[in-house]
Design a protein around this nucleic acid. Structure first.
Lengths: 220, 220
DNA sequence: AAATATATTTAGAGTCATCTAAAAAAGTTA
DNA sequence: TAACTTTTTTAGATGACTCTAAATATATTT
């Protein structure tokens, strides 16, 4: 069984939405994520359900099936391996890779991925800190907490940042925040959740609550 | 102006057919090459003509326009750069790369190609000896002659072999014929054009006229 | 040049993925 | 629970690319 490029994108989107939610995924949520109309999503859900990659009941939302999870993880694996390639071998910045990897992830050649993986030294995380599933779709889950959750006076290391927003990633470059950076929370502003932090023992800097909530740290 | 994946494949096919012919390209020739029906080709020719990448007049066949040539050469450039990547960096054999490169050539990112080109050391030929056009679509033409054209007693070096037939390329591997190999023509069989050759001063070996006509040599 | 054969185009239809508008179901509020 | 709002689905249409069958143009043969 083969999925079309469009089907792959739907599946991946549903998988990612399901990752960050424990309830069923709604038609509207998918349509917003993919910038399509809910009616189009309904059509596609029937198709994906026929192919057994999702469990779908009218009006009840969807879950990704076991079969769908395997497929989704292979697409994600490809996406993240290509991102590593772009950054480590071609010198891309971490804010330049997402869009290109969105195209490269659909290339169909198991041999290519196997050899790319070897060429890259079997990396386990992509340039944004996201784990790379192995050939069986497995990867290690690391317990993380958002920077915004750290208490004043506490420290953490940056483990993962959002991958798809170039403007945020450029900002992180500007303030020299990288994967692995040590973050010390110096103060929190209750009014709007602004956080005052120190990155790698350098100058103090304010970041918005919105940014702070997207930076994932090791919880020590 | 952007071409769809399907349009790109039509354009590339027409370009390649035109390379090996000085007359206009027929609807049937295109349909055979792309394994579609002539009626489908006619539809597409109207579309490509509207986009000014070909010159088309009903019943008269097509030529690739200047605009079309530029686009085609960029696709070919991408195809051949990816082939170099697959062979030189990922360890693919020359008979394994064509199909994957057919997919990779459609990835849209000028930055990617620029950086890939640099990463590979700005190669000028692909693993089958085909020239790689530069960013402006230019490349050096080398005068070549088919092995089948060499006279008995003459020598040549292998410069270019067909790229898309794995079974032929596997056979060349078997008889240890590589790009650059020195070929000495020892005998020719008039009956069916079989050629007896010596490759790099090793044992003599017979190759069919069909194979001999696809191996392109430097004419010394 | 007429007859025949071949190549090409047109007409009409099917599939895939999308849309809009309307209908139906589910959820919320009074 | 009845009325209203929101979400989801259905119905019908569109655009891109393909097909078959029929019509038309070109090429070849006699």
């Amino acid at each position: 069984m083969q999925l079309s490029l469009v089907e792959e994108n739907y599946l991946k989107t549903i998988y990612h939405l399901a990752e960050h939610s424990d309830s069923d995924i709604s038609t509207t949520a998918i349509s917003e994520e993919l910038d399509t109309k809910p009616a189009s999503v309904t059509d596609m859900l029937r198709k994906l359900s026929d192919k057994d990659v999702i469990n779908y009941q009218k009006y009840r939302g969807v879950q990704v099936s076991d079969k769908g999870k395997k497929l989704a993880l292979q697409i994600i694996r490809k996406h993240r391996l290509w991102e590593v390639f772009l950054v480590q071998k071609l010198g891309f910045n971490w804010y330049e890779v997402h869009e290109v990897a969105e195209q490269l992830e659909h290339i169909k050649s198991p041999l290519l991925i196997k050899r790319l993986d070897n060429f890259l030294g079997k990396p386990t995380v992509d340039p944004h800190g996201d784990p790379i599933p192995d050939e069986n779709g497995e990867y290690k889950e690391v317990p993380l907490c958002a920077l915004s959750e750290l208490e004043t006076g506490n420290e953490g290391n940056v483990i993962k940042v959002p991958d798809s927003d170039p403007s945020l990633l450029r900002h992180l470059d500007k303030i020299k925040m990288k994967l692995g950076s040590k973050i010390l929370v110096k103060d929190k502003v209750e009014f709007d959740d602004t956080v005052l932090i120190q990155i790698d023992d350098r100058n103090e800097i304010y970041i918005s609550g919105k940014i702070a909530s997207t930076i994932m740290c090791s919880s020590i």
